[in-house]
Design a protein around this nucleic acid. Structure first.
Lengths: 262, 262
DNA sequence: CGCATCGTTGAGTGAGCTCAATGCATGTGG
DNA sequence: CCACATGCATTGAGCTCACTCAACGATGCG
């Protein structure tokens, strides 16, 4: 890959009209629908009117199981599908020249992956399952077809992308102006909120990623991640047992970086 | 502001249909058009077919002059317009709790600002002119109206947003895995490329931002920026006189970080 | 069982931070 | 026109946080 901040403007790209699902995607018994999905409040239809969600049911997409450590797509591959996580956890990552990987995001149920591929028509990052997972593979060309006849769907796509821009801006802020404790605190509180929104405990959870992956995401080494976990435990903010985390004092954890970010 | 990585999913947002331009935007003699703008290859119409650009001429927008140090919009303000830079330089920034600002981008002629506002309906960052400047203020609601009748315009918006996502991913990579010299080299080469694409010299230019702003953007202190400039000068990679930069050895500058990013 | 992966912890180091002094350019008011 | 203030950049000195290198234990898989 090459650093996008160094790239010249992109060449024109046209997306083909969507056609029949490919052989690689396993056949499903009955057509899956967004409107009766238990993740509809969090996922693609989030914030849509019910009539728009009904329209979204016209969307042809397939479910796909992904085993732990398998990749859903790799950077540079042709961009065809946007993926919504149904279950499991994914990481998005880029590979640096020296072989190290840079993790750019983690995705849990109800979250979308692959929108970075729209820009160039190729995926800008790779997506790897951190545990056995299932996704909805949504043909992007078909999604835009649908959007052509529905301003609700059109706004939806724009909003999802803009949200991604805002999210990354925050992460840049984190990487640009926080120390190790603040970074890890922000990461844990963010994960906690997302899990809570999905009906899981906000205070106790299991990390699906290694210390190295957390470190890569937060711009620090795995040793520093480990030491910072230990430090939080000594301060009685957390209980840490390998990947099992219990947040004892969320307030103090929040204060760790609310000094910098209001 | 609050860190978006900590936020729960957004509430539904509807954009009003665009109406007449507001009193705050000065009247213009004749309706400005994209199709005969000298920046059309770089700006909004970039990569569009000529028929789509003709369609884009239906877009009602106004020109607006901005004095140095004036803000175009502030974080939290209602998002109404997307801005295209016609001349001058802008910075996008967020304000941290301790009063420090975090610069998230610099914008020069032909570049867009404000797309981060789509997500929440409010601007997620502020835009400040670093020199006297002029922008095209494009009503976003009107842009989406236009997109509803044109898949080319619709793709354009998606692609521009996706490009922004990819750009920020690169910056995250920079902030997460590069040292001071690599960061400054990447910044200078990026600026050089963008200036070259606009017909300016790639090797000699004037920085419109302070050392503090560069430092904030790159995640380092102004002193380290200054020292790194001096180091590059000693290595005969640059000639630096305050804000005037001459790149002597672009190859060596590129090698400074091509070791990490291919 | 043996090997690989993952996590923890220690010791030492250094890149980049903070604090501080100084110089230069520009603007302003008397 | 001078005196003074202000903003920006440079440079030095010292320190510290997070990095590198290393050892070691635990876990899990083929």
């Amino acid at each position: 890959m090459s650093l996008a901040v160094l790239e010249a403007p992109a060449a024109p790209i046209r997306f083909a009209t969507w056609q029949a699902p490919e052989a690689m995607t396993p056949a499903v018994s009955s057509k899956p629908r967004c409107s009766n999905c238990h993740l509809r409040e969090l996922c693609l239809p989030s914030g849509m009117s019910s009539s728009d969600v009904t329209r979204l049911d016209g969307l042809m997409f397939t479910r796909r199981k992904v085993k732990s450590a398998q990749t859903l797509y790799r950077e540079g591959e042709r961009f065809q599908f946007v993926y919504a996580v149904r279950s499991g956890t994914f990481k998005s990552s880029l590979t640096l020249a020296d072989g190290r990987e840079q993790v750019s995001n983690f995705h849990i149920a109800g979250e979308l992956m692959g929108l970075d591929g729209v820009a160039q028509g190729n995926h800008a990052s790779s997506a790897t399952a951190l545990e056995d997972a299932e996704v909805c593979a949504i043909p992007y060309a078909h999604l835009t077809e649908l959007a052509a006849g529905s301003s609700g769907t059109q706004h939806l796509i724009s909003r999802l992308m803009s949200r991604e821009i805002v999210r990354e801006q925050s992460l840049m802020m984190l990487l640009g102006s926080m120390n190790a404790e603040e970074r890890l605190a922000a990461f844990l509180l963010n994960l906690s909120k997302r899990l809570k929104a999905r009906g899981y405990s906000a205070s106790e959870f299991h990390l699906r990623m290694t210390r190295a992956e957390i470190g890569s995401y937060l711009g620090m080494t795995l040793e520093t991640v480990s030491r910072t976990f230990s430090a939080f435990q000594e301060q009685r903010l957390l209980e840490v047992d390998k990947r099992h985390i219990r947040i004892i004092d969320p307030g103090a954890l929040a204060r760790a970086f609310e000094m910098r970010v209001h």
